[in-house]
Amino acid sequence: MTTATAPSAYPPPIAALLPQARDLADRLGHTPSRNALMKEFKIGAPKATAVLEALTDTDTEAPAEPEPPAARPLHLVPDLEPDTEPAEPPTPVEPLPTAAPVEPEPLPTGAGHPDTTTITITEPEHIPHVSGPRPAGKARKPRSWPVVLLALPAFVAIWSGWVGLGELTGFGVVHPLPGILDSFSLNTAITLPIGVETYAAYALAVWLTGTAPVAARRFARWSAIGSLVFGGLGQVAYHLLTAAGITHAPWWITTAVACLPVAVLGMGAALAHLIQANHE
């Protein structure tokens, strides 16, 4: 039994406290904390910290030998009784019988005997895949002979109408080569159907094909419509004058018909220049 010593008036030095701290550590089995040192030796926090550092340095310099691990007690394990009934071997699975390949029967020929000719099927060559929709069947080009059949009677009517109107307006037979070939004569009335109707067909083709420049197609559209309307009015004027028994057309009809060749020449030249402007 130890007797507690009365605390002295002056705090003990660190050297005197260090052995007591080691004894405390031995009793506790581990390094005491700072609070434990303050409580045990009635010292302040700075001195307890200094004692703890000195104690830790001492333990580091001379580490205690680790205690050997305690031997684990052995215990007996009862032997397991072997299984008296041996496991049955798995039943072998018999493989399914493979069917023999069936050979195709030879086809009978016309004479009643089997055909023994061997047909060899070869794999097709690699065909490159072309992306995109497959083109439909080639469209059949429409035939143009119905247009010719329709144009023949119209040509006869238009030709006779323009020639007759030309004769009523002063167009007639002339000798274009006087003194050179006096026997050569020409009826100038044929210039009306050739000029007006030919230009109308030419302007329609430029307008409807869509390959000409925009300005050329616009000019061809309006000039073709004007030529067809003017041609229709000429046919109406001829038939009205003929039905009325008039042998000479009025002056305003004569003036309009006389200007037709000049107008056709100007419109044809202008349309040709507009078409060529896209290719320059």
Rank of each mutant, 00 (worst) to 15 (best):
S8Y: 01
P13S: 14
P19D: 08
Q20S: 06
Q20W: 05
D23N: 09
D26C: 01
G29M: 02
M38L: 01
I43C: 07
G44F: 00
K47L: 06
T49H: 02
L52D: 07
D57F: 04
T58M: 09
T58K: 11
T58Y: 06
T60R: 15
A71L: 11
A71T: 12
P73W: 09
L74V: 14
L76T: 09
L76E: 14
L80Q: 12
L96M: 06
P97T: 12
T98M: 07
A99Q: 12
A99W: 03
A99R: 15
P101N: 02
T109A: 11
H113S: 10
D115G: 06
T116K: 02
I121S: 04
E123Q: 12
H129G: 03
P135D: 13
G137M: 11
K138I: 13
A139T: 13
K141F: 12
W145F: 05
V147D: 14
V147P: 00
L150C: 01
A151K: 13
F155A: 15
V156E: 03
G161E: 07
G161A: 15
W162I: 00
L165S: 04
E167F: 00
L168T: 01
T169Q: 09
T169N: 04
T169C: 15
F171G: 05
G172S: 05
G172F: 10
V174F: 01
P176T: 03
G179T: 08
S185V: 05
N187W: 00
V196T: 10
A205E: 03
V206E: 01
V214N: 11
A216E: 01
F219K: 05
W222I: 04
A224Q: 03
L228A: 10
V229T: 13
G231I: 00
I246S: 12
T247G: 11
T247A: 15
H248I: 10
A249L: 04
A249D: 04
W251G: 08
W252T: 02
I253K: 00
T254V: 05
T254C: 02
T254L: 04
A256R: 06
C259K: 10
A263H: 07
G266C: 08
M267E: 12
A270P: 00
L274N: 09
H279S: 06
E280Y: 01
